[in-house]
Amino acid sequence: MSDRIAGLLIAAIALVYGIVAGGYEQGFGDPLGPAAFPRIVAVPLGLFALVLVVRPDAEPAWPRARVLLRQLNALLVLVLYALLLEDLGFPLATFLAVTLLARELGARWRASLLTGIGLGAGLWTLFDPILGLPLPLGLLAW
């Protein structure tokens, strides 16, 4: 079933992709132009996607609700990390993200906090002053 859904979805994308590509203007002295290659790609893209619809493999083992929740939590942490990295600064954002991720991976609170502090400070020290990659300090820069 998953294969069928994915196949239909990709086939639909291939169709739109091919139609959008058709709108690109032909260049001068370039017999193929910018439209041709995407259109050539769209055909097998759609066809192979339809193969999945017609001949799907066995259903993959999708995660159960509890595992899915862990994955969504972790993703939320990552997105928030990207969102807050520049405002909070690398050390603080990393401390928060690592603490929550370690907790999600099964560490106790104490160990999680220590890991967060260690990596927040340690990675910043390693990358910024030692390796010379400038990282944002955010709130800590005053």
Binding site: L78, A97, V98, A102, L105, G106, A107, S112, L119
Partner: peptide, 9 residues
């Protein structure tokens, strides 16, 4: 729980 956060970061 120590290794994976290092990889992600």
């Amino acid at each position: 729980w120590l290794l994976m956060p290092i990889v992600v970061m």
